[in-house]
Design a protein around this nucleic acid. Structure first.
Lengths: 238, 238, 238, 238
DNA sequence: AATGAATGAGAATTCATTCAT
DNA sequence: TATGAATGAATTCTCATTCAT
């Protein structure tokens, strides 16, 4: 009621909400571009079209603001993960969707993933925050994998939590490859100039995972020694 | 490389070579502890037992010194990799050794891996440096994998370079888990309190890789649906 | 004075008069606690339960408001002095009352005296303001002393204005001792832990003044040399 | 020895000592002119002909520097007091010298006494510092007074510590009158335009003290009531 | 060649004051 | 008229870099 009246009297107050968003976006952008320390509060204020004073009205200090940006990004990622896992298809299909869409997300929202790296190196991050951030995907992945193991869709010779971590390891590195200049370059060291432009990385990793998470040692079939001619689709110039 | 050059510049001072080492060590330590920006040149000079003036005699500026530290670490890692791959055992055995010893290395030389993370976020790293750094392991891994594929020891349905990258992805995340506070905590989110102390992570990842890199989709064997009782070795307390 | 003017400006709002009082009280409190510069306009507004805008409606700027607070305090002190000197008893009795009641006033209204100190250090105080503030007590004291001199109740060998000033000097220091943390501590340096709690300071100063303002050099009586045993009432534990 | 060699090798090092002095002087000057908060570190650096960096090399922060200035002033005052009390003349003569020379000191070194006022209002002064500052004069005065009481040169009806405090009260106000614009003006309110230029204040207070500290109530002599004509030397225009 | 004091640009943060609502 | 969000100048403090000794 009261809120509604306020909304009518000061419809601009809604701008504040929007402005908040704008400010955080400016922060994420700036931090991901230049890093925590090289980004100045003035820079952020300028990008957001506000004065530093506003920044300090909403946030205690630079670190507080940085953490808010991290939360913002983490929340976005959680939503991304939620959306994909909402539709209760087979875990393997979900994983497939996750990988494919991660690539697009990482390309579109590079700052988000760079901010992740920026955060990961922060020495003063409270334990709880880390659990907050990693807990959700950890649970989602582990549960899905346990589920798949029970259905017989996934290898059962390993702790589901470990498989979940390996999955996230690979997914994270994939995302970094599309978001961080360093890991981008690294991907090209491995996959050549077009490693990221074409489907080399995404498709390749997808296919790697498909069997890596499905087959267990016991599934091994005897293979007769074969000569150097590998199948066409796995060849590539050095 | 750099070290060699310096040695030539001041050949009369055998101490210089040693001192250089000390200075770089101080740098690696400091940078990995506090990050590039939070580390001061005075701090480094103090740790190395020299004056800032010396620092600026050997290195153009802070960034130049940081890069030298990175080189130093990379060089160390290269040697580590070289040592392990020198003895021409089977690639799979080498991988095994790499993983097991990586853990120990990461624990003993945490600064090295933290410096890697610190470096990876640096936006102003020249392409060439990245190729320099990642090129060596990329080549080693890819060659070894191609080799193994030809012998039939490794799945052939994927580009060796891609498999190499996946391998390095997992290895890197493993190393980070033992070296970076953030990834340490993350490992515990997945594997519980003792994820790092016991062999949960190292052993688990090793076993994951064993089949992940060996089996290909075609190897799939029909498995009869099994009930909820997973094999003992994949169970874990909640 | 000022208060009167404001009352005329907003005569329709009886509340304003009261609010004014509240605002000034908030100011006096804040300024005396944290000093002129460390007190913020927001702080004052918050204490007074108003918005900064109001502050700037009534007062040109922070300095103007500070001066208003000073006036307020000075006015209060003037009333205090007026009340005591209204009843036309002997000057010496008035002085006695002044000292005794000053102590109570200083303890109850510490902010008033601290604000005095805060004001006394202000370099940009207009001459007139100082004359305004000190003129009233100066006149009262001087007149009373001149009066007492004529009656023979006070030493006549000195200018009544000078005696008045000495009296005010001692009175001020007494007040500071009960109101300012620094002078409080100083009193304890002289009189020990309980200098202020018991009557050491007040009573002592009263007795000091009694003869100091009464006797003149000519009154000197020959005193035979006496040994170390001072009279009981001047002894004190170490 | 070593110090001597250093002195010869780097005679400029002595400049540092001198520079220290210059810096503190600049600080005392600035703080006493504009107050603790209104004085900026840049201002001080500028006055001292150095850069802010130097200030922060020698002193932790502004507050630390302020305290150093206070110590510097206090030390100076202690020396002043020491010099005067060194020659073991009669306490009353020492008091006389103290008052006379205080005036000159206060006029020459106004900043010192203004800094005292600036310090006295500081809320965060540690107890110990206050005891440090006030302890020395308190002891000197109290001892001298006790001594004089035993000789019969001073009134014995009061605690020597209390008399000491009254003496210091009057001395401090005298000093303030010559050093602080506010108390200067106040002195003129009492003593007229030339209160400070001529000897009205100094001489008057001296004569006031002479008997105030000498005579005790018991010394009172009966005085016959006298008419309004006070002695010439105590008259003054209003 | 080594030292480390000095420099001063630059960053974080505060707060008096304004002004749109 | 009252509000209090927004502004941005000013201040403290840091630290890469220089240079006289």
């Amino acid at each position: 009621m009261r809120l509604h009246r306020l909304f009518i009297l000061f419809p601009e107050k809604k701008l504040t909400e929007e402005k908040q968003r704008e400010i955080l976006d400016a922060g994420v952008q700036a931090f991901s571009e230049k890093g925590l320390e090289k980004t100045t509060m003035n820079d952020i204020a300028h990008r957001a079209g506000i004065s530093v004073g506003v920044l300090y009205k909403y946030y205690k200090d630079k670190d507080d603001f940085f953490r808010a940006c991290v939360y913002c990004v983490v929340e976005e990622m959680r939503q991304f993960l939620e959306e994909i896992t909402r539709e209760r298809t087979k875990p393997l299909l979900q994983a497939k969707a996750l990988i494919t869409k991660s690539r697009r997300l990482a390309e579109e929202k590079r700052p988000y993933f760079r901010l992740y790296l920026e955060m990961a190196r922060n020495q003063s991050l409270p334990r709880e925050l880390i659990h907050d951030i990693e807990g959700y995907p950890a649970r989602i992945y582990t549960d899905a994998i346990r589920d798949a193991q029970q259905r017989g869709d996934m290898r059962r010779d390993l702790d589901p939590a470990l498989l979940a971590m390996c999955f996230d390891d690979l997914l994270k590195m994939l995302q970094f490859s599309y978001a961080s200049p360093y890991f981008e370059e690294r991907a090209q060291v491995y996959g050549g100039e077009h490693a990221l432009e074409e489907d080399w990385l995404t498709e390749g990793m997808l296919r790697f995972m498909e069997s890596a998470f499905t087959l267990e040692s016991g599934d091994i079939r005897h293979r007769e020694e074969t000569p150097a001619d590998a199948p066409a689709d796995c060849k590539r110039e050095a």
